[in-house]
Amino acid sequence: MTSIRIEKTGPVAVLRLEHGKANALDTGLCRELAAKVDESGARALVLAGSAKVFSAGVDLRRIRDGGAPYVREFLPALSDAFLAVFGFPGPTVAAVTGHAIAGGAVLAAACDRRVMASGAGRFGLTELAVGVPFPLVAIEVLRCAYGDPVLSELALSGRTYAAPDALARNLVHELAAPDAVVSRATEVALELAAAPEGAFAHTKAQLHHPFDERIGEQRAADDGPVEAMWSSPETLASIGEYVRRVLERG
Protein backbone atom coordinates (compact mmCIF):
# COMPACT_ATOMS: atom_id res chain seq x y z
CA MET A 1 0.00 0.00 0.00
CA THR A 2 1.45 3.35 -1.03
CA SER A 3 2.10 6.03 1.59
CA ILE A 4 3.09 8.79 -0.84
CA ARG A 5 0.85 10.34 -3.47
CA ILE A 6 2.46 12.19 -6.39
CA GLU A 7 0.78 15.15 -8.08
CA LYS A 8 2.35 16.93 -11.06
CA THR A 9 2.15 20.69 -11.66
CA GLY A 10 4.15 21.33 -14.80
CA PRO A 11 7.79 20.55 -13.99
CA VAL A 12 7.04 20.20 -10.26
CA ALA A 13 6.16 16.93 -8.56
CA VAL A 14 4.33 17.28 -5.24
CA LEU A 15 5.05 14.27 -3.02
CA ARG A 16 2.32 14.09 -0.36
CA LEU A 17 3.06 11.94 2.67
CA GLU A 18 -0.07 9.99 3.62
CA HIS A 19 1.19 7.55 6.23
CA GLY A 20 -1.09 7.28 9.23
CA LYS A 21 -2.06 10.22 11.41
CA ALA A 22 1.45 11.55 11.96
CA ASN A 23 3.46 10.58 8.86
CA ALA A 24 5.81 8.83 11.27
CA LEU A 25 8.99 7.62 9.61
CA ASP A 26 9.33 3.85 9.51
CA THR A 27 11.37 1.58 7.26
CA GLY A 28 8.66 1.26 4.61
CA LEU A 29 7.96 4.98 4.33
CA CYS A 30 11.66 5.83 4.17
CA ARG A 31 12.29 3.32 1.39
CA GLU A 32 9.23 4.48 -0.52
CA LEU A 33 10.28 8.13 -0.23
CA ALA A 34 13.77 7.41 -1.53
CA ALA A 35 12.30 5.47 -4.46
CA LYS A 36 9.66 8.11 -5.29
CA VAL A 37 12.25 10.90 -5.30
CA ASP A 38 14.48 8.87 -7.60
CA GLU A 39 11.61 7.95 -9.93
CA SER A 40 9.81 11.31 -9.99
CA GLY A 41 11.28 12.46 -13.29
CA ALA A 42 10.48 16.03 -12.23
CA ARG A 43 12.50 19.21 -12.54
CA ALA A 44 11.57 20.24 -8.98
CA LEU A 45 10.01 18.62 -5.93
CA VAL A 46 7.61 19.75 -3.22
CA LEU A 47 7.43 17.53 -0.16
CA ALA A 48 4.15 17.96 1.70
CA GLY A 49 2.46 16.44 4.70
CA SER A 50 -1.16 16.11 5.74
CA ALA A 51 -3.44 18.90 6.92
CA LYS A 52 -2.00 19.11 10.45
CA VAL A 53 1.27 17.18 10.36
CA PHE A 54 4.25 17.34 8.04
CA SER A 55 5.98 14.50 9.89
CA ALA A 56 6.16 13.84 13.62
CA GLY A 57 9.50 12.08 13.15
CA VAL A 58 10.57 8.50 13.68
CA ASP A 59 7.90 5.92 14.50
CA LEU A 60 9.08 5.31 18.05
CA ARG A 61 6.52 2.60 18.69
CA ARG A 62 8.09 0.53 15.89
CA ILE A 63 11.52 1.06 17.47
CA ARG A 64 10.21 0.07 20.91
CA ASP A 65 8.44 -3.01 19.63
CA GLY A 66 11.04 -4.12 17.07
CA GLY A 67 14.15 -3.59 19.19
CA ALA A 68 17.66 -4.08 17.83
CA PRO A 69 16.70 -6.10 14.69
CA TYR A 70 14.33 -3.36 13.56
CA VAL A 71 16.86 -0.61 14.33
CA ARG A 72 19.41 -2.43 12.19
CA GLU A 73 17.22 -2.17 9.07
CA PHE A 74 15.59 1.16 9.88
CA LEU A 75 18.53 3.50 10.45
CA PRO A 76 20.13 2.98 7.00
CA ALA A 77 16.71 3.45 5.37
CA LEU A 78 16.21 6.69 7.33
CA SER A 79 19.57 8.08 6.24
CA ASP A 80 18.93 7.02 2.64
CA ALA A 81 15.61 8.89 2.65
CA PHE A 82 17.27 12.06 3.93
CA LEU A 83 20.01 11.72 1.30
CA ALA A 84 17.51 11.15 -1.53
CA VAL A 85 15.86 14.50 -0.80
CA PHE A 86 19.11 16.29 0.04
CA GLY A 87 20.83 15.00 -3.08
CA PHE A 88 18.05 15.73 -5.57
CA PRO A 89 19.73 17.95 -8.19
CA GLY A 90 16.77 20.23 -8.83
CA PRO A 91 14.90 22.58 -6.50
CA THR A 92 13.22 21.04 -3.46
CA VAL A 93 10.70 22.82 -1.23
CA ALA A 94 9.16 21.53 1.98
CA ALA A 95 5.50 22.42 2.42
CA VAL A 96 5.53 22.19 6.21
CA THR A 97 1.80 21.66 6.61
CA GLY A 98 1.95 21.16 10.39
CA HIS A 99 4.22 19.64 13.01
CA ALA A 100 7.76 18.89 11.80
CA ILE A 101 9.42 17.21 14.75
CA ALA A 102 12.77 15.40 15.07
CA GLY A 103 13.21 13.35 11.88
CA GLY A 104 10.38 15.34 10.32
CA ALA A 105 12.34 18.54 10.86
CA VAL A 106 15.43 16.89 9.36
CA LEU A 107 13.37 15.92 6.31
CA ALA A 108 12.24 19.53 5.91
CA ALA A 109 15.82 20.74 6.38
CA ALA A 110 16.95 18.46 3.55
CA CYS A 111 14.96 20.69 1.17
CA ASP A 112 16.31 23.90 -0.36
CA ARG A 113 13.41 25.99 0.96
CA ARG A 114 10.81 25.58 3.70
CA VAL A 115 7.33 27.12 3.64
CA MET A 116 5.46 26.54 6.91
CA ALA A 117 1.76 26.77 7.61
CA SER A 118 0.93 29.66 9.94
CA GLY A 119 -1.24 27.42 12.09
CA ALA A 120 -0.65 25.36 15.21
CA GLY A 121 2.29 23.29 13.97
CA ARG A 122 5.65 23.21 15.74
CA PHE A 123 9.18 22.74 14.38
CA GLY A 124 12.13 21.34 16.28
CA LEU A 125 14.54 18.55 17.14
CA THR A 126 13.56 16.37 20.11
CA GLU A 127 16.04 13.53 19.66
CA LEU A 128 17.86 14.11 22.95
CA ALA A 129 14.56 14.42 24.81
CA VAL A 130 13.75 10.94 23.52
CA GLY A 131 17.26 9.73 24.33
CA VAL A 132 18.64 8.91 20.87
CA PRO A 133 21.69 10.29 19.04
CA PHE A 134 21.60 11.86 15.59
CA PRO A 135 22.88 9.78 12.66
CA LEU A 136 25.70 11.52 10.80
CA VAL A 137 23.57 12.10 7.70
CA ALA A 138 20.96 13.95 9.77
CA ILE A 139 23.60 16.15 11.42
CA GLU A 140 25.19 17.10 8.09
CA VAL A 141 21.82 17.86 6.49
CA LEU A 142 21.00 20.12 9.44
CA ARG A 143 24.46 21.70 9.40
CA CYS A 144 24.01 22.59 5.73
CA ALA A 145 20.58 24.11 6.36
CA TYR A 146 21.36 26.09 9.51
CA GLY A 147 25.07 26.33 10.26
CA ASP A 148 26.77 25.27 13.49
CA PRO A 149 25.50 27.88 16.00
CA VAL A 150 21.81 27.39 15.15
CA LEU A 151 22.26 23.63 14.87
CA SER A 152 23.87 23.48 18.31
CA GLU A 153 20.94 25.30 19.89
CA LEU A 154 18.37 23.19 18.04
CA ALA A 155 19.99 19.82 18.69
CA LEU A 156 21.07 20.30 22.30
CA SER A 157 18.03 22.16 23.62
CA GLY A 158 15.38 19.84 22.21
CA ARG A 159 12.98 22.78 21.98
CA THR A 160 10.20 23.05 19.43
CA TYR A 161 8.97 26.34 18.00
CA ALA A 162 5.62 27.63 16.82
CA ALA A 163 5.51 28.86 13.23
CA PRO A 164 6.22 32.58 13.96
CA ASP A 165 9.22 31.65 16.13
CA ALA A 166 10.46 29.15 13.54
CA LEU A 167 10.39 31.95 10.98
CA ALA A 168 12.10 34.43 13.31
CA ARG A 169 14.88 31.90 13.94
CA ASN A 170 15.26 31.22 10.19
CA LEU A 171 14.27 27.60 10.58
CA VAL A 172 11.77 28.17 7.76
CA HIS A 173 11.90 30.74 4.97
CA GLU A 174 8.30 31.95 5.01
CA LEU A 175 4.83 31.30 6.35
CA ALA A 176 1.62 30.74 4.40
CA ALA A 177 -2.00 30.21 5.34
CA PRO A 178 -2.64 26.54 6.16
CA ASP A 179 -4.83 26.07 3.10
CA ALA A 180 -2.25 27.74 0.84
CA VAL A 181 1.04 26.28 2.06
CA VAL A 182 1.29 23.61 -0.65
CA SER A 183 0.38 26.02 -3.45
CA ARG A 184 2.87 28.57 -2.16
CA ALA A 185 5.59 25.92 -1.90
CA THR A 186 4.82 24.95 -5.49
CA GLU A 187 5.19 28.59 -6.57
CA VAL A 188 8.58 28.75 -4.85
CA ALA A 189 9.65 25.54 -6.58
CA LEU A 190 8.61 26.97 -9.95
CA GLU A 191 10.53 30.18 -9.25
CA LEU A 192 13.68 28.22 -8.44
CA ALA A 193 13.16 25.96 -11.47
CA ALA A 194 13.32 29.01 -13.74
CA ALA A 195 17.12 28.87 -13.47
CA PRO A 196 18.93 26.77 -16.10
CA GLU A 197 18.78 23.15 -14.98
CA GLY A 198 22.48 22.38 -15.32
CA ALA A 199 23.63 25.59 -13.66
CA PHE A 200 21.22 25.08 -10.75
CA ALA A 201 22.35 21.49 -10.21
CA HIS A 202 26.03 22.44 -10.34
CA THR A 203 25.60 25.31 -7.91
CA LYS A 204 23.60 23.15 -5.51
CA ALA A 205 26.29 20.47 -5.66
CA GLN A 206 28.93 23.10 -4.86
CA LEU A 207 26.96 24.27 -1.83
CA HIS A 208 26.46 20.69 -0.61
CA HIS A 209 30.02 19.52 -1.31
CA PRO A 210 31.57 19.87 2.17
CA PHE A 211 28.62 18.11 3.76
CA ASP A 212 28.51 15.35 1.15
CA GLU A 213 32.25 14.90 1.61
CA ARG A 214 31.94 14.40 5.36
CA ILE A 215 29.08 11.97 4.87
CA GLY A 216 31.10 9.98 2.34
CA GLU A 217 34.17 9.87 4.57
CA GLN A 218 32.54 9.27 7.94
CA ARG A 219 29.18 7.57 7.51
CA ALA A 220 30.48 4.01 7.64
CA ALA A 221 32.41 4.71 10.84
CA ASP A 222 29.46 6.57 12.39
CA ASP A 223 26.72 4.08 11.58
CA GLY A 224 28.01 1.35 13.90
CA PRO A 225 28.17 3.38 17.13
CA VAL A 226 24.85 5.11 16.38
CA GLU A 227 23.14 1.78 15.74
CA ALA A 228 24.62 0.40 18.96
CA MET A 229 23.32 3.37 20.96
CA TRP A 230 19.83 3.18 19.42
CA SER A 231 19.76 -0.58 20.09
CA SER A 232 21.04 -0.53 23.66
CA PRO A 233 18.70 -1.62 26.46
CA GLU A 234 19.05 1.82 28.05
CA THR A 235 17.99 3.64 24.87
CA LEU A 236 15.13 1.27 24.15
CA ALA A 237 13.91 1.78 27.70
CA SER A 238 14.15 5.55 27.25
CA ILE A 239 12.19 5.33 23.99
CA GLY A 240 9.55 3.19 25.69
CA GLU A 241 9.22 5.68 28.52
CA TYR A 242 8.92 8.59 26.06
CA VAL A 243 6.20 6.76 24.13
CA ARG A 244 4.31 6.07 27.36
CA ARG A 245 4.73 9.55 28.84
CA VAL A 246 4.30 11.71 25.71
CA LEU A 247 2.71 9.76 22.87
CA GLU A 248 0.28 7.59 24.78
CA ARG A 249 -0.77 9.94 27.57
CA GLY A 250 -4.50 10.29 28.08
Rank of each mutant, 00 (worst) to 15 (best):
S50K: 14
D38T: 10
G28T: 10
G49L: 00
T27Y: 08
F88E: 01
R43F: 10
L83Q: 13
L29C: 07
F82W: 15
T27G: 11
K52S: 07
G57K: 02
G90W: 01
S55G: 12
R64E: 13
P91Q: 06
E32H: 07
V85Q: 02
R62N: 13
F74T: 03
G28R: 11
D65G: 07
R61Q: 12
T27E: 14
I63W: 15
F74S: 01
K21R: 08
G67K: 05
L75I: 12
A24W: 12
F88R: 04
D65P: 06
D38F: 09
V46N: 02
S55R: 02
S79C: 15
R62C: 12
A35N: 11
A68I: 04
K36C: 12
A34S: 11
S55T: 05
G49F: 02
R43G: 14
P76F: 04
G20S: 04
L25K: 10
F54M: 03
F86T: 05
C30D: 06
G66S: 05
A48M: 08
V71D: 04
L78F: 15
L47E: 07
L78P: 05
N23I: 04
A35P: 08
A56I: 11
K36F: 12
R31Q: 14
G87S: 15
E39M: 00
S40L: 02
F74M: 09
V46F: 05
S55N: 08
G57V: 04
A44K: 01
E73D: 15
P89W: 04
R72A: 14
S40K: 06
D38S: 15
V71K: 07
